[in-house]
Structures are given as structure tokens and as C-alpha cells.
């Protein structure tokens, strides 16, 4: 028997313990661990605050010169020193929205198939494959977009959209480099995120719900609606929000296919621009301090927009689920 352990047992009350025997007590390790993890958690908060502060600091010139006009005008002329962010905000939001509209039904459909319908043997391999898509670097998606997706859109998809839907949203001629192509490529990039998270959400639904739905005479489809989809609403919204976060910040692939023209137009087949891609494109060749400052302000704006959308999503969750799950 270890004598120091004996000592901790018997002499605890009588005299203070030597340092090393205190170390061996269970409580000490727990405390260190708790402090350490708390430190890591605060580090994240600190980094986020520092990033915001740095951006704010760097964009001071632009904020001072342009004021609110930065948010309300759409002229972007570095030579004249005029900066309006609207086209970039529009491009970012529209391409992300398009991506969500395409990817959400696909992603949720895939994960429903994988958790509820697919044969057991197929589930793991397919899920693994879909999740591998997330590991492909975005510049590779961009190259694929330029060489394959954009010409394919130009020749096959876009003419059909112009012919059968048309209107203000799909106007030719199409170059293939457009808001719509950016949306498509983004949707492929966020598909693994949506699929992986919604798959986990569905898997966490207790089997007893499925059984009771079946025991009430529900068909497969009704069981999925009643016992799987409904309890998963919050989780699915979480999956979509995480994917939206990725879509908003995506730079390389978007900049390679969006056409890079700062324009606000309802035509989805026209070229556009995005916040992340304007920073990437112009930062290294910025003319003058004010231009750099304006780009920093775009970065700050992107951060704020992401934050606001996340808050909005949380509020949405709060209000839609308040009745039952709060």
C-alpha cells in the first residue's frame, strides 16, 4: 500500500498536507481541467472581439468618409474614392439564398434516405462519401466550376431557364458566369454540411416515436413526417444556418464563377459580385489607404451580417418552438 495515500486518509484533519499529496487528490485535477477549458472558451470570445475590433479600426477611414452612404449607395469607384457596398451585399445574400434553396431539400432528402429508408449496408458508405465532399478545397470547386459547370450551365441549363421560366429573373444572353452558377456551386459546397448535420438530427430522434407512429397505422411517409421531421425542426434550422454561414463566407469558388461585376439586377443569369470575392480580388492591388479601409469595412459588414442572420435564426427557433420545447 502506498504510504502517501495512507497519509491523506488519516491525517487530513490534523495538519495541512504536503504539496504533492494535494496534487494527488482528485479535486485538484478537476479544478485544473475546469480552468483550462474555461480559458479556451474565453479565448474564442477574445479572438472574435479582437477580429471585430481590428476590422473596425482598419475601416475607420472609410467609415469616416462614407458614413451611412457606404450601406445605401451602389457606386464602387476606388479611383474617385467612392464606395457603396450594396452590389456586394446583394450578390452575397442572393447567391447564398439560391444555394440554400437548392441544397436544403437535397440535403434533407439525402439524410432522410440515409437514416430512414436506405438499406443498412448502404447507409455508412454513402454518408461517408457525402461528407468527403466537405473536405475538397474550395479552389478546386472553383476550377471545376470554371471548366465544367459554367460552360454546362451556359449551353444546357440556362437556355432552358430562359425559354421556360424567363421573366426578369432569367434573361439572356448567358455567359455561364453568373449569380445563378455561383448559387449552384455554393449549393454543392454546403450540401455535405446540411446532410451531415440533418442526418445526426434525424438519428437522434428516439426510435420510440417511429414505432408509435407505425403502431397507429402510419405509412412510411407519414411516420417520417410525424415522428421524424416534426421533432427535428429546430435541428434542421441549425443545419441550414450553419450551411448559410459557410455560403456567406465562401470566397474562392464564388469569385471564379460569379463574373465579378458589381451590379444589382434581378436577372440571376447576369454577372454579380460578392463581399468575400471583392476583398480577395482587390485587396492586393488596392489604390490608396481609403480603398483598403473600404475593403476592411466590407469585411466588418460581412461579419455583422453573419451575426445578424444567426441571431435571427435563433429568434426564429425561439418563437416557432416556444409552445412545446422551450
Amino acid at each position: 500500500m502506498n504510504p502517501s495515500l495512507d497519509a491523506t486518509k488519516d491525517t487530513q484533519i490534523e495538519k495541512p498536507l504536503p504539496f504533492f499529496s494535494q496534487m494527488s487528490q482528485a479535486g485538484f485535477g478537476d479544478k485544473v481541467f475546469q480552468k483550462l477549458t474555461a480559458f479556451f472558451a474565453f479565448l474564442i470570445l477574445f479572438l472574435a472581439c479582437m477580429t471585430a475590433f481590428t476590422l473596425w479600426h482598419a475601416s475607420a477611414d472609410s467609415i469616416h468618409k462614407m458614413g451611412w452612404k457606404f450601406l445605401t449607395t451602389s457606386d464602387w469607384d476606388p479611383v474617385q474614392g467612392v464606395f457603396g457596398a450594396i452590389p456586394y451585399v446583394y450578390g452575397t445574400l442572393m447567391s447564398s439564398l439560391l444555394a440554400l434553396l437548392i441544397a436544403a431539400p437535397f440535403g434533407i432528402g439525402i439524410s432522410l434516405f440515409l437514416t430512414e429508408l436506405a438499406p443498412q449496408k448502404l447507409r455508412e458508405p454513402v454518408a461517408f462519401l457525402v461528407e468527403t465532399l466537405a473536405a475538397i478545397p474550395s479552389v478546386v470547386y472553383g476550377l471545376w466550376g470554371i471548366f465544367l459547370l459554367a460552360p454546362f450551365m451556359r449551353e444546357h441549363i440556362d437556355p432552358l431557364l430562359i425559354k421556360y421560366i424567363g421573366g426578369p429573373f432569367f434573361k439572356g444572353p448567358s455567359t455561364g458566369l453568373s449569380l445563378f452558377t455561383a448559387g449552384v456551386i455554393l449549393s454543392i459546397m454546403i450540401l455535405p454540411t446540411i446532410t451531415a448535420i440533418s442526418r445526426e438530427v434525424f438519428e437522434s430522434v428516439p426510435n420510440s416515436y417511429r414505432e408509435s407512429a407505425k403502431a397507429l397505422g402510419a405509412t412510411n411517409w407519414e411516420t417520417i413526417q410525424l415522428a421524424v421531421m416534426k421533432p427535428s425542426k429546430v435541428g434542421l434550422l441549425g443545419a441550414i444556418m450553419l450551411a448559410l454561414g459557410r455560403a456567406l463566407g465562401e470566397t474562392m469558388a464564388v469569385t471564379m464563377v460569379i463574373g465579378n461585376r458589381p451590379e444589382v439586377s434581378a436577372n440571376l443569369l447576369g454577372a454579380s459580385h460578392s463581399m468575400a470575392s471583392v476583398i480577395a480580388n482587390e485587396f492586393s492591388e488596392a489604390v490608396g489607404d481609403i480603398h483598403v479601409s473600404a475593403l476592411a469595412e466590407i469585411g466588418l459588414l460581412l461579419m455583422v451580417i453573419t451575426l445578424l442572420l444567426n441571431i435571427a435564426a435563433h429568434l426564429l427557433v425561439w418563437f416557432t418552438t416556444s409552445k412545446f420545447q422551450r
Partner: peptide
């Protein structure tokens, strides 16, 4: 089976009211 399960109902070990329904 859907009809069978309507005529022959089942109650499980753990109560399972659907969580999102009133």
C-alpha cells in the same frame, strides 16, 4: 399492415406522445 395496426393498437413501455403535438 396499416389497417391491422388501426384495429390492433399498441402502447409502449415508455410513454411516447409526439413531442411537437398538443
Amino acid at each position: 399492415p396499416v389497417v391491422v395496426r388501426r384495429r390492433i393498437g399498441m402502447v409502449f413501455q415508455k410513454p411516447t406522445p409526439f413531442p411537437t403535438l398538443s
